[in-house]
Design a protein around this nucleic acid. Structure first.
Lengths: 112, 112
DNA sequence: TCGTCATGCAACCTTTTGATTGCATTTTCT
DNA sequence: AGAAAATGCAATCAAAAGGTTGCATGACGA
């Protein structure tokens, strides 16, 4: 595995952030985090978009690892995977740490 | 301002996450966080995409408040705005806090 | 001033994304 | 069995995103 593809590097987080970068999806994720497992119908009722649109958004969130689903009878229930949110936060932390290190280097340079 | 539009709510963070949801932009942001202010030419040399593509990506990052630019002679220098990264992290924290509260409510319910 | 380096601007193109509609399938309940 | 509910699947569409090329503009330096 090349260094550029090493896991944990911020670049790998792009698909994760992309999944979070849509109002409808963020709304779904928030509702799932707040309300436990919900069916597609439950999620799409009270949504401005159609059931199929909701299904597609859930699929995107699922690909990003942010939610997962399981069958229960004739329903398909979706629940949040909050550990993935921590991943996103860690990536942001990595980037801002680079910034802090850059400041430190600048400070060192000025002190010379 | 309606409650749904109140600042600080996770939904407002969608454009911010969307800006982070692209490999090229994340790469630019990381380089800017690591290396101080850089010109468009400096950023596009060593990039797989053209200078104009880089310009567009910087514009997106700028709209999201993640970077800003200033003129210096004939160059336009770009620098990171790391406080915006903290905003993104706070939004994620809000969502995962909802999750924790949901768990607490479930625990309360089970104990009854 | 004249060539050159760094950008800005604009048209254009292709792929992806977000969303819709219509119909098929699966499961439940009477 | 037969109707209704929940979902799956597929075709389609408009708009946005990502990228490129070509040319214009602006600033520096010999």
């Amino acid at each position: 595995m090349s260094p550029a593809d090493a896991p944990g590097l911020p670049l790998d987080a792009a698909p994760l952030f992309s999944a979070l970068g849509d109002r409808t999806r963020l709304d779904l994720l928030v509702r799932l985090c707040a309300g436990g497992a919900l069916s597609i119908t439950a999620l799409s009722s009270g949504s401005p978009v159609s059931r199929q649109a909701v299904t597609k958004h859930l699929e995107v969130l699922s690909q990003a690892g942010l939610v997962r689903s399981f069958r229960q009878g004739r329903e398909r229930l979706w629940e949040a995977e909050p550990r993935r949110l921590d991943d996103a936060r860690r990536h942001l932390e990595l980037i801002s740490r680079q910034w802090d290190e850059a400041l430190d280097r600048l400070k060192q340079y000025v002190e010379d």
